[in-house]
Every structure is written in C-alpha cells, then in structure tokens.
C-alpha cells in the first residue's frame, strides 16, 4: 500500500505538472499543456487543485491582447515534491 504518498501528487497529470515546474523558473499554461499532452480543461482543473494546496502559484496577465497564464512552483510545492520523491525511493528500495 502506498498510503504515505501525497495523494495530491500521486496522480499522473499533477505529478507531470509538478515534475515540469520543479526544473522551471516559470512555465506558460500552453507549455504545460503541450508537454503533458493533456486537454486544456483537464489541466486547468489540476492546476487549480495544486494552487489551492499552495504547491504552485498561478499568475494571470496579458501578452498583447491575449491572456497569459504563467505557473511556478512554490517553496511548499518544492518541499512536497521532495518528500514525495523520497517516499518513492523508500518504496522502491524495500
């Protein structure tokens, strides 16, 4: 049983997003969508869940007339991600 794994991160799409953001200074919504091959609606829902947990920060602005959504990982998100990876390593080591 993987009961100690953070349920918020133990999901393909949310983990994929967090894995991208961990090595990025910031990333656009469209970049995350392209890299994860997810639908806009699905990714939007998962981003909101991560933002509600303060794992990521979402900034909304404009580039010219087009809306621009930029995401970046927070300190809390980095800590959660590191703990998740350490837990994974323990499971694999057992």
């Amino acid at each position: 049983m993987l009961k100690d794994l953070d349920p918020l991160l133990h999901s393909q799409l949310r983990l994929g997003i967090m894995s991208l953001l961990i090595s990025m200074d910031s990333a656009e919504f469209t970049y995350l969508k392209e890299k994860t091959n997810a639908t806009a609606g699905n990714i939007s829902v998962q981003l909101d869940k991560l933002a509600e947990a303060n794992y990521i920060e979402i900034k909304k602005s404009f580039r010219g007339k087009r809306p621009l959504t930029t995401c970046s990982i927070t300190k809390k998100g980095i800590k959660a991600f590191e703990e998740y990876v350490n837990a994974l390593k323990e499971y694999i080591g057992k």
Binding site: Q12, L13, L20, K35
Partner: peptide, 25 residues
C-alpha cells in the same frame, strides 16, 4: 496524460518524473 492514480506504481511515478524533467531542456 490522465489524472488516473490507480495503476501508478512507485517505479512508474519515478519514470514519469524523469521523463518530464528531461522535457525541460
């Protein structure tokens, strides 16, 4: 990519993390 959590083993999770990080070249 789905939000599916059911069949995600620890190894699959690590593989996913590695694959995603590699994409940020």
């Amino acid at each position: 990519m789905e939000t599916n959590t059911e069949n995600l083993t620890p190894q699959e999770s690590l593989d996913l993390i590695t694959r995603m990080i590699r994409q940020t070249q």
